[in-house]
Design a protein around this nucleic acid. Structure first.
Lengths: 195, 195
DNA sequence: TTCGTTCACATACCGATGGTAGGTGAGAGA
DNA sequence: TCTCTCACCTACCATCGGTATGTGAACGAA
């Protein structure tokens, strides 16, 4: 760890800003939290914030990236634990439902993300983190003849949107039965893809 | 038509504000358009705006309501043109894809809506306008034994989210083939629901 | 027709917020 | 030790959403 004191301090400040922002953005929403609130909670000044990020939206972008990477890791982890391609798909989808339903994820990743950065950029980031896995899994299954050959992109978007909305709904619905029902309904939809 | 001059003027101002806002919100996005821009385009003052709406978010809410009603009308119209319950569902879903893909709809209804008003309120409004039709159609199909009996809400959310995301994607993708492919993929997913 | 009231706005103003410019002191390299 | 860089701070600005107060035309009652 030959990092200098400067580098350590720099990383520390950046981390505090990211952690604090993630917490605030998740609970209050992007629009409702001000930079003053962020820098106060992080115990730095606005100057430090603007030294690390080009603005409020850029800070949000960095936070969103970390959130998406967290979710993407969980999805990939669940998928990689299986050998059978079909199980990789279903396990990944179910894991996504669980991960995206957790607190501190939704508001940033599914609600404010598209609005703050624009749908196009959000889509690109989502693609890199988790949606890519979905497309690859579908393509592989078509390769193996498990799923009927068809354009991958439309199907991937349909499924991705279905899971996003379901996660948002599940987070507000307090009834545990809803999660089980949604899992079952999703499994049924996926099952329908098998040739 | 016994409306007084005052009522006519009032309605006229309100309409201009709604029309101008809808156009601006759709093209620039909620965050990027200021009240000054709106009132200038509508040729009124901020006083008039605040006389009709309680604030920027409230104005947006009114615009969103009109957008959703437009889409809801189209969906209901397509569904009501059919007799067979199954066809009512599929026709409604396909019409939604077309309507939501059109310009001036997406940004307001699918991107900024949840972020500005919060997902919960957005969900409620969406429910009233178009999602309700989906749930009712599904319930009716289960009643008739066309679709396997199961909890309606999870399935409705999955399908609703799938169509929303697909519409967003289709609007950016310039290739006409994508629309056809998406319609086909959606039809296949729906077909899987038949018992 | 008169006259007081209401209503649909207009004007002037305020606080807060995102963003910027210039400065400062500690740490790194020579 | 000297100099330069860099991480960060302070003071300030422009803009934006929101509000308090004013005003003239339209309406209803007499």
């Amino acid at each position: 760890m030959g990092q200098t004191a400067r580098e350590r301090q720099r990383e520390r400040t950046r981390r505090r800003l990211l952690d604090v922002s993630r917490e605030l953005f998740a609970t209050e929403g992007y629009g409702a939290v001000g930079l003053a609130e962020i820098v106060a909670a992080a115990e730095v000044t606005k100057g430090a914030l603007y030294h690390h990020f080009s603005g409020k939206a850029d800070l949000f972008r960095a936070v969103l990236r970390e959130v998406q990477e967290d979710v993407g890791r969980r999805v990939a982890g669940a998928a990689d634990a299986r050998e059978d391609p079909w199980e990789r798909l279903t396990a990944g989808c179910q894991e996504f439902l669980t991960a995206a339903t957790g607190p501190g994820i939704q508001r940033i990743m599914l609600v404010d993300g598209p609005a703050v950065l624009g749908w196009n950029e959000w889509r690109g980031m989502d693609e890199e983190s988790s949606a890519r896995h979905l497309g690859e899994a579908l393509a592989e299954l078509m390769e193996h003849g498990v799923v009927a050959r068809q354009p991958v992109a439309p199907l991937a978007h349909l499924l991705s949107g279905a899971m996003n909305e379901a996660a948002l709904w599940l987070a507000t619905s307090a009834q545990p039965q809803d999660m089980a029902d949604t899992r079952a309904a999703l499994a049924r939809l996926l099952e329908a893809l098998r040739a």
